[in-house]
């Protein structure tokens, strides 16, 4: 029996969160006495795909069909199902993202598999197969037994600790994979794609510097961007900020935006409304900079500075630059 892990490619590289999913899947495979097989869809060099071996995979199925070059959850779900069938996989693992949820859902319906999304830790596999996931946007957790023969798990970032220094030099063999693609998966035509290529994606970022209405306006964002640059961080914002078009919509973090789980989240001029906190409570360390000592965000923070963001940010940027 094998565990199948889908890895997302970004510019022909395996996403970091997907490598985490490989490590997670390899752990589940060893718990259940199986092999970890990886599925990659789209263009990538073998040397890149072999990297999955360092995280515990033994084999990578690679479908390089040009039709799979562009993200298409319908066709990707079909490919995932065919890979699972070919490999006799009973457990399918994906790293949580919009694409993964969509693929996982369609694959689960095809396979009549129980699906649990938002998994935060390794499953219990002695006896009943039980997984724990975050619910109520991180305000609570639920433990669920999956009873179906095939199980689909969509795992959150940080569901497993990876010690990069302890990676075994393992290498996976890469096998060409040719899923049968259905025309019905390609009825939509892509009119345009707008993607900020240079930007670090929020869901992948280890550090995020985020701004709220306290930043006063889009023309005042530079000090925040400077700190983000100095730290190698991605930039985010609160909902009113994207509603006001101060920042692009894909930076909106919170209950109704992107949920992030970086190592470090720095909130600048964000009050810390519960809907915003819901999107950041998976962060390892939270820093809050706010001129109001009563701002609710301080209650959820690890470090706080009461002060004006426009005084504080340049100081932090200077200090961050002198780190390296």
């Amino acid at each position: 029996m094998s565990v199948l892990i889908y890895v997302e490619l970004d510019n022909s590289s395996i996403k970091k969160t997907s490598l985490e999913a490989v490590a997670y899947g390899a752990k589940v495979a060893s718990q259940t006495g199986g092999q970890a097989v990886v599925l990659a869809l789209g263009k990538a060099e073998n040397a890149e795909l072999e990297k999955a071996g360092q995280y515990g995979a033994t084999k990578v199925l690679h479908a390089a069909d040009g039709k799979l070059e562009h993200e298409n959850s319908l066709a990707f779900a079909d490919a995932l199902v065919q890979a699972a069938t070919q490999e006799g996989s009973k457990i399918i693992i994906l790293s949580k993202s919009g694409l993964s949820d969509a693929m996982a859902a369609r694959a689960a319906a095809k396979l009549k598999a129980g699906i649990v999304s938002g998994v935060t830790a390794l499953p219990e596999t002695n006896g009943a197969f039980k997984v724990t996931r975050a619910i109520f946007t991180g305000k609570a957790f639920a433990t669920t037994e999956i009873k179906s023969d095939i199980k689909v798990l969509v795992v959150r970032k940080n569901a497993i600790e990876i010690d990069e220094s302890a990676l075994n030099g393992g290498s996976a063999t890469v096998e060409a994979f040719q899923p049968a693609l259905r025309d019905s998966d390609f009825t939509a035509s892509v009119v345009s794609i707008e993607k900020a290529d240079s930007e670090l994606s929020l869901t992948e970022a280890e550090i995020i510097v985020s701004g709220g209405r306290g930043m006063k306006g889009p023309e005042h964002w530079q000090p925040l961007i400077d700190l983000a640059k100095a730290l190698g961080a991605a930039t985010g914002c609160s909902k009113p900020v994207s509603d006001l078009d101060w920042r692009p919509h894909h930076e909106h973090i919170g209950q109704t935006g992107i949920k992030v789980a970086p190592n470090l989240y720095i909130a600048c001029g964000i009050s810390g409304a519960i809907q915003h906190l819901a999107g950041v409570n998976g962060s390892k360390c939270i820093v809050v900079i706010n001129k109001d000592p009563e701002a609710p965000f301080f209650k959820a923070a690890d470090y706080g500075i009461v002060g004006d963001v426009f005084d504080i940010l340049p100081k932090l940027t200077e200090a961050a630059k002198s780190l390296k």
Partner: peptide, 28 residues
């Protein structure tokens, strides 16, 4: 597909360490 679930609340958050604004750079 699944059995009824059980719920847990997260562990409470520790205290926030405050850094005086005039020593902001020490945060890094």
């Amino acid at each position: 597909m699944t059995a009824p679930q059980t719920y847990q609340l997260p562990a409470p958050k520790g205290a926030c360490k405050m850094i005086p604004a005039d020593q902001a750079e020490t945060l890094i």
